[in-house]
Amino acid sequence: MLNLIKRDLLLSFYSSANFFFTVSFFVLILILIPFAFGTQSDQLKLLFKGVVWIALALSIIITVDRIYNADYEDGNLDIIMQKNKTIEYLVISKYVTHWFIYCLPLLVILPILSFLFYLDYFETIQIFINLFIGSFGMVFIANFVSALTLGAKRTIFLKAIIMIPLFVPFIIFGSDAASWPILLGLSMLSFVISIYVTAYGLRLYGE
C-alpha cells in the first residue's frame, strides 16, 4: 500500500506537467467569473462560492483519465494488482494519491483566489472546509467511474456524463457554509459505494 503511494507520487513528480495543468485549469475557470459577470464585489463573492465547486468538479473530471487508464493501457496495472492481492488496499492508496496530487494543490491555492474575490477570512475558512470534505467524496466517485470506464472508447465525454449527475449533491450542498456535515455524510456514502465498485471494475478488467 505504501509502496504504491510512493510510486504514484514519484510518477506524478516525473510528469509534473499534468499537475500544473490541473491547477491552471482550476484557476482559469475561476478567473473567467469577473469577465463573464462584471467586477462588482458583492456579486463576485456570491458567484465565487458556487463556481468554485464547478471548477473543482471539472478539474476532477479532467484528471479522471489519469487514475487507472495509463497503468491499464501500458500493463502496469497487472503488476500492481498482482502485488496487491487485496484490491481494496490498492484502491485506498489510489484515493490517497489522487487526492494528494490533484485536489490538495487546488485547496492550497484556494485562499489566494478567495482574496482575489474579496472573501474575508471567515468565509475563506468555511469554503476551505467544505471543499476539503467534499473533494474526498468527488475523488471517490471519480475513482469508481475511472475503474468502470477503463475499456471504454470516447471516454472523457462519457465519464463526464456519468460523473456530473453524481456530483450534483455535492454542488448543491457545497455552496452552503453550514452544510459541511451533509458533505461529510455524502463523502462517507460515496466511499463505501466507490470501494466496492472500483474493486469490482478492476477485477473485471483484470480478467
Binding site: 510518477l11 516525473y14 510528469s15 495509463a70 493501457e73 501500458d74 500493463g75 502496469n76 497487472d78 503488476i79
Partner: peptide
C-alpha cells in the same frame, strides 16, 4: 504480459 508496462 504482452504489454510492456513502460511509460512512454
Amino acid at each position: 504480459g504482452q504489454k510492456n508496462s513502460l511509460k512512454d
